[in-house]
């Protein structure tokens, strides 16, 4: 969505958006009678202040990277995948299911469980991709609807299929677990797990596939101009489906990280975890490039994790961070007006 902007604008707009978001957050704190400096200090110490908090923050960043990559991958092909939330859920449940159903050595079991998450997410995204490619049905609506179908289906599976009418499944055995005793002792027993390596690897794969392969070129080309791509002999429909499937696979992997790492089990969700929706913000803020997504995911991980400590240390309710994130999304989305103002400023200076 930044195609029409110059390079420096592409970097400046997200940075300005974040600053504006934090300023609005400070104003909200001031108006409701809190000290914004205390609030943000608490946020920082709650996310980076101690080994335990750093571990928790890294753990929070992991699914954000996957969700951001998922949204961004579809974006680059001109598709808006709001269904990351649902794809993440089915990936979560599928990975836990495989983790519980088999008894295998870890070298086979863990990759298999992770792969199950990716496949489930990919399948869930395949449906909107197919409908878009074959019937020109708008993917935004279909993916939103698929989110809720996933929520209800997964809750049903957890309750009646994977567990014996319980609200949670059993824990996945050690052979399918991403848990890391090494990181746990390193970070004073946080829930940090090996998933962060997979997330970083996924970001590299994202970069290589999109920027260095013919497939990636075709996908991006379809995103720029479908008609020109078609005229150049590319199969637009195939690329639309492929883009959704890969996007869904990233999302499903994010779910597997939660299922096999953070929690180690599946449970009944009353509402969405929100990671998938935050992924939209991560992708937008990261400018849909791998390095930007990692940075944006880190920012959101810090905000989300730090927010949990804010009520204890400064009295500020956790939801302040939701407000800040919403404002950041508003400003990134309204990048046209920021770019316009930047240009005016520049002209004024001359």
């Amino acid at each position: 969505m930044f195609n029409q902007f110059s390079r420096w604008q592409k970097i400046l707009i997200p940075v300005i958006s974040v600053i504006l978001g934090l300023i609005v957050g400070a104003i909200v704190m001031l108006v409701s009678g809190y000290n914004p400096i205390e609030g943000y200090t608490a946020l920082l110490s709650g996310s980076l202040g101690e080994g335990f908090y750093i571990g928790e923050t890294v753990r929070q960043i992991t699914p954000y990277i996957f969700a951001g990559l998922a949204v961004a991958f579809a974006f680059r092909t001109g598709l808006f995948n709001i269904g990351v939330e649902g794809q993440l859920l089915v990936g979560w449940v599928a990975s836990v299911w495989v983790g519980l159903a088999f008894d295998l050595p870890k070298v086979i079991h863990l990759p298999m469980a992770i792969l199950a998450g990716a496949v489930a997410g990919a399948l869930w995204a395949f449906i909107p991709g197919l409908l878009k490619a074959k019937l020109r049905v708008h993917e935004v609506i279909v993916t939103i609807m698929m989110n809720y179908i996933a929520l209800h289906l997964c809750n049903y599976l957890v309750r009646y299929v994977i567990s014996d009418e319980q609200n949670t499944t059993d824990r996945v055995p050690e052979s399918a677990s991403l848990k890391s005793p090494f990181f746990e002792t390193l970070t004073e027993f946080s829930t940090m797990h090996y998933g962060i390596f997979l997330a970083l690897a996924a970001a590299i794969i994202y970069f290589v596939v999109l920027e260095k392969t013919t497939t990636g070129f075709e996908l991006r080309s379809v995103g720029f101009n479908q008609h020109a791509s078609e005229y150049a002999g590319m199969n637009v429909n195939r690329n639309i489906i492929l883009s959704m499937v890969i996007s869904g696979a990233f999302a499903g992997l994010g779910g597997a990280m939660e299922g096999l790492g953070t929690f180690g089990y599946g449970f009944i969700h009353g509402a969405f975890s929100g990671v998938g929706f935050d992924g939209i913000a991560v992708a937008l803020l990261g400018g849909n490039v791998a390095s930007g997504i990692i940075l944006a995911a880190a920012l959101f991980g810090i905000l989300k994790q730090g927010a949990l400590i804010m009520p204890l240390q400064s009295g500020v309710p956790t939801e302040l961070v939701e407000i800040v994130i919403a404002i950041i999304i508003f400003f990134v989305a309204s990048s046209y007006i920021i770019a316009y103002l930047l240009q005016r400023l520049r002209k004024g200076a001359k």
Binding site: I280, L284, E319, L320, I323, A326, F330, A333, S334
Partner: peptide
Amino acid sequence: SFRADQVVSGVAINFLALGLGVY
């Protein structure tokens, strides 16, 4: 007015409403 992506702006509305309300 700002020509924002309408879907993204809608997502932000959802975040903001819930965040502000619960806050």
